[in-house]
Design a protein around this nucleic acid. Structure first.
Lengths: 375, 375
DNA sequence: CTGAAAGCGCTTACAG
DNA sequence: CTGAAAGCGCTTACAG
């Protein structure tokens, strides 16, 4: 039983079923306007075929009923969901959130909505999430992979869901990807330190099972190997100590470094033959934690020890000593990933697979300086 | 024309239409299993009514076809979308992202997906976003309002979309809300500074049109008023200077403060009668920026000037001098907001409106100390 | 316990 | 230019 009643405090006609209010559908609009549902749909989709007077009466009915088109039903019918799934490693990491802001910017232009979730770097979560996205028939997925085999990602691509890898250098044939050359970035950081005369370097890396940490490890070693070859004739060899932290966080870095300093296991910043004169951190958060630990022990930056980060999050300029770091263009990365996803389904270029790699650059600020004579 | 073919590199039966692969539907599963679609649906929804042998054959068909149930269609039919819309002021603000992590945790338990977007503190964006969420018939919306009139929020509530206000003290009759008593928090911060003997205080607030900034302003003034009454007999009056920054960011704070120091407009940290001996910052990011500006000018914290933040983001412990701050339980706030939303639609308690207010607490760390005699 | 039918709310050819 | 009908992929009473 459907009836109409006009609310008292409202100009609108309110549809009710057995007294309960009911959201109006195209059918209700059509009835009120005295046209067919097809015509209502044509008005909703701005088809020029509709006569102006008919259009007007339909629009009047829409307003009167307070009709709001159900875009979920529209999506089911057209097969085009407005949702794009985004799975990152960690919602609270500024790197991903600045990237997400870039994604959002690009997606908004297309009227897309972002379904954002974090995998917490666990393959199980990633698999579950990707399957949820696929079941929802999202328009596509932006994924920072944890599972390097990309098993589930391939699974949903086979199901017809385009996937763009974010912050991943993998180049599978059926997924686009956007990445920064992490190895090169780490190389540049070390080269910067070597050029300042630092020969004893501490490398605070992230967890060794994370790809980003692995690549930065490779870059560090490559830079040192190259430099060692060129420096064969000099007396002082390059010494590297690498520590894998439990996470890419300031907390992990601070407590680890504090322990090392207190335990005198590493004579960081002390003018001895054994002490590192520079620290390269695998991301800015680690560098911030390291800076805190160092300053708490009275070790000066950059006089006693130079410090280099990675990412260039906005806080890198705000640390007590502004941070020299390897800049990743986070917002552009996110924007580019979203762009590749949207382009991959444009009618003009279906399945347009592309692998975009950005080259990072060293931003020199105040946390690095020449290794002093005493060092 | 529909045909079946068995792929070579796959055990599965692949459905095709005119040579193009086609995703299997319940109908295809039903045909292969030799049952009706209703039975397939019963299996998918684990209804105990299905005979075990029938269930088995349906499950076999599902596996063989690689069937993935379309949850968007399911949502349309059942009227229950898995999506919850979340609209925050700024994706790159750690406060919101730590809260989002809490929301995600609660929503995941319910199998919900988070549609996350930022309004950038603009009412137009907020209105647009809320309408998109409503058109998608999301299960509910978590909103940090920019538009204090809540016009669009009310609009979608009338359409049947539950809205829970996040980080908002508004108590409309038809929306739950979760908030922290910002006024109280600011009061506590000032009381802490007064108790340390600081009488000349600089207050670096956020933009004055933002509700959080307004409430913290009220709290600051209230604390000062109360203290002034109690101190009427003492000689030294309490002096407050408030500056409204353009945004709640470290950058804004640092440049503003640097300008003040360089221009000698405020003798911050100088032992004169006019210099503030303490700074209260409306959030931790502002405090981080302030810390940088102060240290860059050789002003010591807390010896020359005490510094208090607000939020207790994880970085607050990682600043060069660890930050005394007013803690908001961000993750719990997010969790509680999601919880209220989900409960509001439980059959047991429909439309269960609740207003949760959390009380903040001062976390004393190293950035505050007693006002020294010279001050 | 299972099947046939109706329907969630829309859009899209196809007639007229 | 507009209407009637079929269909996107599910689920849910209702018969049997």
């Amino acid at each position: 039983m459907t009836s109409k009643s006009t609310g008292l405090n409202d100009e609108r006609t309110v549809l009710t079923v057995n007294g309960l209010p009911k959201r109006p559908r195209v059918k209700d609009v059509a009835e009120l306007a005295g046209v067919s549902v097809g015509t209502v749909s044509n008005v909703l989709n701005s088809r020029s075929s509709v006569r102006p007077e008919v259009r007007n009466s339909v629009e009047a009915a829409i307003t009167e009923l307070g009709f709001v088109r159900n875009t979920a039903a529209q999506a089911l019918r057209t097969g085009l969901s407005p949702f794009v799934g985004v799975a990152v490693l960690d919602l609270t990491n500024p790197f991903f959130m600045e990237a997400a802001a870039g994604m959002e910017e690009r997606l908004n232009n297309e009227g897309c909505l972002m379904a954002l979730a974090s995998t917490n770097s666990e393959a199980d979560n990633e698999a579950h999430l990707l399957r949820s996205f696929a079941a929802q028939r999202v328009r596509g997925v932006l994924l920072t992979p944890t599972d390097s085999s990309l098993t589930t990602a391939h699974e949903i691509v086979r199901q017809g869901i385009p996937v763009v890898l974010f912050d991943s250098p993998a180049t599978p044939p059926n997924m686009s990807s956007v990445s920064v050359n992490d190895q090169k970035g780490a190389e540049l950081a070390i080269e910067h330190l070597l050029s300042l005369g630092h020969h004893r370097i501490l490398f605070l890396n992230g967890p060794s099972h994370v790809r980003q940490a692995q690549d930065r490890h490779l870059g560090v070693n490559r830079a040192i190997k190259l430099a060692s070859q060129n420096l064969q004739h000099t007396i002082s060899p390059i010494e590297l100590t690498e520590i894998s932290l439990a996470s890419f966080t300031a907390n992990a870095a601070r407590s680890e470094l504090q322990e090392l300093i207190v335990g005198s296991k590493l004579q960081v910043g002390r003018p001895t033959q054994l002490a590192p004169t520079a620290i390269f951190c695998a991301n800015d958060l680690i560098a911030i934690g390291a800076m805190t630990a160092l300053q708490a022990s009275g070790i000066r930056i950059p006089e006693d020890v130079s410090l280099v980060g990675f990412d260039d999050i906005s806080l890198a300029q705000q640390t007590s000593v502004s941070l020299t770091t390897v800049r990743q263009p986070m917002k552009e990365l996110g924007w580019a990933a979203a762009d590749l996803l949207l382009n991959s389904q444009s009618p003009s270029a279906p399945k347009n697979i592309e692998h975009k790699s950005f080259t990072p650059e060293v931003i020199v600020r105040d946390s690095t300086a020449e290794a002093s004579a005493s060092q």
